[in-house]
Design a protein around this nucleic acid. Structure first.
Lengths: 218, 218
DNA sequence: CAAGGGACTGTTCAAGCGTACAGTCAGGTG
DNA sequence: CACCTGACTGTACGCTTGAACAGTCCCTTG
């Protein structure tokens, strides 16, 4: 799988956008400066404004670009393998590597709603399919589980820095990627909670809800 | 479970700290301003500086405070129930609710390393225990799985905004909390990947590694 | 009562920010 | 050739920011 690149992308506009994705991802929207972005792109500050109008406009252009990239990679991997959304999550990590920091920041800052919703929708589709093979009927609607599952899948990208430190190897290095993929597969193929434990917690939850906690902030 | 509050905490210092946690969580470190924090706390800008020295100092005080809070809640829930770290994650959400936005921002911005590491350590302990009851020996070290699992557990807090929107109900509302808890239990008690699917993806991964992808960025 | 120290305020300063704009240059068109 | 359009630059403006400081108030202590 090759890194996707638009053919027309040696233009200054593209360089600015790429630099913005880098800066926004590294320092966040507020932390990034147009001057810094312009310098990285090798253009003047004025040109940034000429092409994107404002900082917000630049951010929107980045979001839009990322969105089309996600779609492209998704279609690509979906055509290639039939393991469903999860397989995509695991295998598509490589292709979107350079956008992960930006994606992480953007999602954590509350923007990129369309991106999350699209991923959640894909996840829900796949989940509905998987529910058919499930022995016990799910007691929670697929939409809710898809939303939470999507967040969990994205967390690896968002917290890659912490994961790398805790694992002792950079998840962007070949060996880190290897380890991460295997850890993901292990986690996804083993229930964390036994059936009886789940029932017990569920019961405790019901009880707690029928007898709401006393007190609060004094 | 009551919301933990320090007894001495009606002081201006505490109000500033709380306001800072609110602002940092809502707008990020760079986005928050000392003036805005001071206004929310009902004090002057100068007093903020008097107590915390600098913006960075204020952030560190917030981190430290959050860290002690996490520890406190963790000890509390651990004493109360024996379901391990996961049960804590699910049941402790309520107590730490008001700090979730801050935690999310802080973690996503790459800071709060000590917090993540502590949680990962707790998770690893619990995982090592759970591995004993596992039929197949895990092929990935507990440390790596703990790191990824911790990230996943935190993702709910980090992306709560997106999850709320995708679920159609605010996860901080009583009914949203209800739904979220049940979704979490369902997800944690059911493997996403079947054993044979896992093996297949693993095999595909091994193959892909032995024949590295051609090309890259042109 | 006097003295001292910490809590607290209002104002000021330099720096850096996003934005705005006038103007240059190259390429295509009548 | 004259004209125009769009890419591109440099400079300047107004504003907000974090930081700094001198000074006031109040409570405690001797």
């Amino acid at each position: 799988m090759t890194t996707p690149v638009d053919p027309e992308d040696l233009t200054a506009r593209a360089r600015i956008r790429d630099a913005a994705i880098l800066h926004f991802g590294e320092r966040g929207y507020e932390g990034a400066t147009l001057r810094g972005i312009a310098e990285t792109a090798g253009v003047s500050l004025g040109l940034v404004r000429h092409h994107f109008g404002s900082k917000q406009g630049l951010r929107e252009a980045c979001d839009e670009y990322l969105f089309t990239m996600i779609r492209r990679v998704n279609d690509q991997t979906r055509a290639g393998m039939a393991s469903g959304a999860l397989g995509s999550v695991i295998t598509a990590r490589g292709a979107l590597r350079s956008y992960q920091r930006y994606m992480a920041r953007t999602l954590a800052e509350g923007s990129a709603a369309a991106l999350f919703d699209e991923l959640a929708r894909l996840s829900e589709e796949w989940l509905a399919e998987a529910d058919k093979d499930r022995p016990d009927p799910p007691r929670v609607e697929a939409r809710a589980r898809a939303a939470v599952g999507t967040a969990m899948a994205l967390s690896v990208g968002i917290l890659h820095e912490h994961i790398s430190r805790a694992m002792g190897v950079d998840v962007f290095s070949p060996e880190g990627d290897r380890l991460l993929a295997r850890a993901l597969i292990d986690i996804y193929s083993h229930p964390v909670l036994g059936r009886e434990d789940a029932e017990r917690i569920l019961a405790a939850l019901d009880e707690a809800e029928s007898t709401p906690p006393q007190g609060g902030s004094p």
